[in-house]
Design a protein around this nucleic acid. Structure first.
Length: 513
RNA sequence: GGUCCGUUCGUCUAGGGGUUAGGACGUAUCCCUUUCACGGAUAAAACACGGGUUCGAUUCCCGUACGGACUGCCA
């Protein structure tokens, strides 16, 4: 057999925001392409002008960019020999091939309007029969170029009557699909309906467009969602009708709702308050607007890592992967067959792991806009040190501000219970003595600060429990947070005196109430 | 309803004719510790059911149940 270069495509429809499941499909295609030294192609399937949503295509591009899954070919990415990559720009190509199918007897004109078909469906449903299907059993009762005389067909077409082209599914055949994930799947052609392949508006349906493009673009492997498995039989028929070689198919398991049943939908995101899209999307209505993983404070590598392991695993205990490591480990054979539930807790865990592994400098760059949006402009060294001591205490990027805001602003609320229990106005002079001692320090690194405190505490016969909780709350208002010496070091002598004196005043007021 | 796909701890999953059925998230407890986290340790927790095949099935086959996808001139 001829060995061809692998060419795979990610073919989303620009009907809205790109779902996280689509993101995973893109990822697996990307990984397979990189692993095999092949080509990763982006194709925009915009043959449905009714469902077309402006901005969706750029959303898809931005999502892929954010995730680091850049196509080798696609709209705006070159690869001229195979373009264009938007199906709406390939209309005439599909029409040519549809005509070829008519000539070879594999397809026919159908004049039945959507309204008439709807009536047929209604009727069978009311009679309690199984759903109406336009197939080898019923097509001779409908109005099409199989039942109408040749002259009538011509007359209708010339008159401008609307028509569509349907695939003429042969009867009595067994169709075999050899799926790389699922093995061999059989279909009886008698069960298949005569799918519309060219719509009355002159656009192809997915079925035709997908086969023609995959052939013309020399796609070798089709990796797509499981929802396509049932129509793959039609696709096989199309390849046969054209006499074209088929790509290999791999149908990916679905991503399921976090709880309950069914596949993950955008509704789950808003209902549970969790992101199910890579980036935020602003639709026409609040119900059609979503927060993305990026805006929820996730790092792209964490999302990629999480997604990669949802339905695939390398067969080892490794959980953390760089993109390059994923490429190295990825094989289609290791893709699972059953649907995977979307586990947001696991996603957060991945994010935390990635944040901890990110340098303070990089983190500061990500956190700065959030802090500045609040009106604070910390020194870079301060911000970096802040990120360094907070990064193992946050899960998403926004936590840096949410749980660390009191490093920038003066506290207005503090852990009153602990203060009521621990604060003794009479001890204030002891703390003031400690402040003076610290101010006299030549070096202000955490280690020196800590030693000075220990020495002072020993001198004055103070216990850690009498000192640390009070300082901690006086500094940032809460019992949660980095080590006290670290924080003192971060603030430096002047700011530490300011914060402590202000807080002690607050404590006095509280206790005297 | 019909067609197709699937089923190992709560979740993501490894494994595969003979295993104490392994790991991770989450949960609980403990250790580390000035707090919180991080890190470490321990624990509870799974082969849907019924028939075969076999000396032996969680693993192979067939049913059943359950779940899912598809069933548009949507993709």
């Amino acid at each position: 057999m001829e060995i061809k270069n692998v060419r795979v495509r990610f073919a989303p429809s620009p009907t809205g925001a790109l779902h996280i499941g689509g993101m995973r499909t893109a990822l697996y295609n990307y990984l397979f392409a990189r692993k095999t030294g092949g080509t990763f192609i982006l194709r925009i399937e915009d043959t449905d002008q009714l469902r077309y949503v402006p901005g969706a295509e750029s959303y898809i591009l931005e999502s892929l960019q954010w995730a680091g899954l850049l196509p080798d070919e696609g709209p705006g990415f070159g690869g001229g020999a195979y373009g264009p990559y938007r199906q709406s720009e390939r209309k005439d190509i599909y029409q040519r091939y549809a005509q070829e199918l008519i000539r070879s007897g594999h397809a026919y004109y159908a004049f039945d309007t959507p309204e008439m078909l709807e009536a047929c469906r209604q009727e069978t449903q009311e009679k309690g029969e199984s759903a109406f299907k336009y197939d080898s059993q019923t097509r001779l009762k409908m109005s099409n170029s199989l039942t109408l005389p040749e002259e009538e067909v011509q007359a209708r077409i010339e008159r401008g009557d609307p028509w569509a082209i349907r695939l003429k599914v042969p009867s009595g055949e067994i169709i075999e699909v050899d799926d790389l994930v699922r093995g061999i799947v059989h279909f009886q052609s008698n069960e298949l309906d005569d799918k519309v392949i060219l719509k009355s508006d002159g656009m192809p349906t997915y079925h035709l467009a997908n086969i023609v493009d995959d052939h013309l673009m020399e796609i070798t492997h089709v990796i797509r969602g499981e929802e396509w498995l049932p129509s793959t039989a039609h696709h096989v028929l199309l390849y046969r009708a054209f006499g074209w070689e088929m790509p290999r198919f791999s149908h990916l398991p679905l991503i399921l709702k976090p709880s309950g049943q069914g596949k993950l939908s955008k509704r789950d995101g808003v209902q549970l308050g969790i992101p199910v899209f890579p980036l935020s999307w602003k639709g026409d209505t609040p119900e059609d607007s979503f927060t993305g993983f990026r805006e929820a404070g996730f790092l792209p590598n964490a999302v990629i890592n999480f997604l990669a392991l949802l339905g695939w695993n390398p067969g080892t205990d490794q959980e953390l992967f760089t993109l390059d490591e994923l490429v190295e480990a990825f094989t289609i054979e290791k893709i699972g067959k059953s649907g995977s539930r979307f586990d947001y807790d696991k996603a957060k865990w991945f994010n935390q792991q990635y944040i901890m592994a990110t340098s303070d400098e990089t983190l500061a760059g990500l956190v700065r806009p959030m802090v500045e949006a609040q009106g604070y402009h910390p020194r870079e060294s301060f911000l970096q040190a802040f990120c360094g001591m907070m990064k193992e205490r946050v899960v998403v990027l926004s936590d840096f501000w949410d749980t660390g805001r009191y490093f920038f602003e003066d506290l207005v609320v503090f852990d009153e219970k602990t203060i009521a229990k621990k604060w003794d106005t009479g001890n204030k002079t002891l703390f003031e003595g400690m402040i003076s001692r610290l101010e006299a320090l030549e070096s202000f690194d955490p280690e020196t600060v800590h030693q000075a405190m220990e020495a002072y505490m020993q001198e004055k016969n103070l216990k850690p429990g009498d000192v640390f909780p009070i300082l901690r709350i006086a500094l940032i208002g809460t019992m949660k947070g980095p080590g006290v010496a670290e924080m003192l070091s971060l603030f430096g002598p002047a700011e530490l005196r300011r914060r402590l004196e202000r807080a002690f005043g607050l404590f006095d007021a509280l206790v005297s109430q």
